[in-house]
Amino acid sequence: MATLAAVLASTHHPFYLKATTAPPEQQMPQAPEWKRKVEAYRETLTRAKPDILVMVGADHFHQFFLDNYPTFLIGKARRYDATFYNEEREFGLPKYVLEGDEDLSGYMLQGLLDREFDFAFSNELKIDHSIICPIITVRPQADLPVVPIYANIFAPPLPSPKRFYKLGRAIREIIDSYPSDKRIAAIGTGHLSLELGGPRQFGEHGPDPEFDRQAIEWLANGDIEAILANVTHESLAKAGNATAGFMDMILMLGIAGPEKAAYVDNLDLFHTMEAYFTWYPEGAAA
């Protein structure tokens, strides 16, 4: 059976690349620290020696719009183009072409359907920064095949926090049962408290530092009970209008299982709190 070699859950910040590659005199003061933290986090993936990456994100109205927005979608293609024109323009993100893994995509889709997660699928998916940001931070050589999974944290009405966790659990079961000797890493990004296009955006810190502190503690301890007891769509909205992105972190905890994270780090940036978590599931020779 395949080995789930590592589970990574982090925030994604589309300005990381721009912030850390600008000429030194134009860089924000935290750029060197940010880069050090990201490179240390990258090592938690590298040492797991993955062969395939299962990547969880959300389309930000790039390929999908409100005429047909999928709640859950999996890419099932032999390769994926990435980065849209408006992401290049706003964030300075480069274009990529990532190889796919049709066999694992097909196995994952069937496994999800068998577990009553009726996914949409795409045979021609162009992926956006929700998946490219973690490629840049944890696998910048972009040399591994990917299985992209999108979950709707973006266009309400949204699935419940519990549903995100259960989906993570289902993905875990499917990876564990995949008949292959490959080492698979699951990488997903979301947000802690975040505000976009509202009165609390681009402040000195994230919009809700108390939520951020608590969320980091919950994830570090793998405390799904506390998360499900406290996190609702309403509580997330109170912490910032884009804080629903935290549900992708809950999904990743579902893949890891209710365990303490092996690696936890964070960085208080302007606008948002960055946080980085890695789990090594039992039995994974990391």
Partner: peptide
């Protein structure tokens, strides 16, 4: 209006 669309276009 969706906050992401509105922010993105006016930043542009």
């Amino acid at each position: 209006a969706h906050f992401f669309l509105s922010l993105t276009i006016f930043i542009a």
